[in-house]
Amino acid sequence: MTKEFIHTPSAHCETGTVSNLLRSYGLEISEPMIFGLGSGMTFAYLKHIKINGLPLIAYRMPPKMIIKLLSWRISGLKFKYETFRNEDKGKLALDSMLAQDKAVGLQTSVFFLPYFPQAMRFHFNAHNLVAYAKEGDEYKLSDPVFPELVTTKEDDLQRARFSKGALAPKGLMYYPSEVPDSIDYDLVIPKAIRFTGKMNGRWNPVPIAGVHGMRLLAKNISKLEKADQHYAQLFMGHIVRMQEEIGTGGAGFRFIYAAFLQESASLLDSPFLHERSSELTNIGDEWRDFAVLCARLSKKRKGQNYSDAAKQLYKIADMELDFYQRLSKFKR
């Protein structure tokens, strides 16, 4: 009775989940397209929100934001979200959806998912995946960051869905309630692209987000020379972890967005977007160089020179500012 689920491995958990989910509901849409139309790419340096004592550095929009922007932009696409106060009710709701052969997206905590390698299991509460079938006491899952389909025991998934703490999933289950037959790309792509440009570029009023956030982080990196060296090294390592670990597609989501720009360029037949895509690819490569610098600094025992890393980040900020300014003026 189990139907086959078409699983496409993805670079980022949230967009990958939505892409796999929408495909199973009959709307063909790629992962970068979802990331782009949901205006996922950004940068934010939140000094006062700490993860293990280190500030939060985000390279994308907060969880759930991408889906919300997506369903807001695309007419005829609606998602239904359900959270549960009672854990057993949450399980029953999931089981009844799966019994109707409907796949659903779930928010889970990585720490309680046993199929993750031990070294990767941290208390990160906003990992997304698709559940598509249940056999006995095992759920069949499509976890977008894994190359193959996976299975997990009932109890483990239950714990992962109802983990506590910051961004607690509360059993969040979501699925599209209305799916359009097609998307009017001519209308939505320019809007989404201009939004990303304005949100991150010169017109962004918030000093911690977008290009301003990068400069703020660069300033703080150059101050690290006087800070406690143990903390400074953890800080540098932390930057790389936020930028490169699971679900970034490399270079803090820049390559996913470049893939979106390329796909849009062929859809709208726009040489301008082709150029922007390769411009962003170059920026992504600069981010990778930045990661190499940071990782080296996090390991080195003495003679640290943080100004190199700061300089590299200032350079990226300048490049991205130009890039965003061009995006924000994009017209079809």
């Binding site: 953890l234 390592g237 932390h238 490169e244 990661a291 940071c294 996090s298």
Partner: peptide, 15 residues
């Protein structure tokens, strides 16, 4: 895998 990632992941685990 990529070396910078491995370095920082093992650093986090060591901490």
């Amino acid at each position: 895998g990529w070396e910078p990632e491995t370095i920082v992941l093992s650093q986090a685990l060591e901490e």
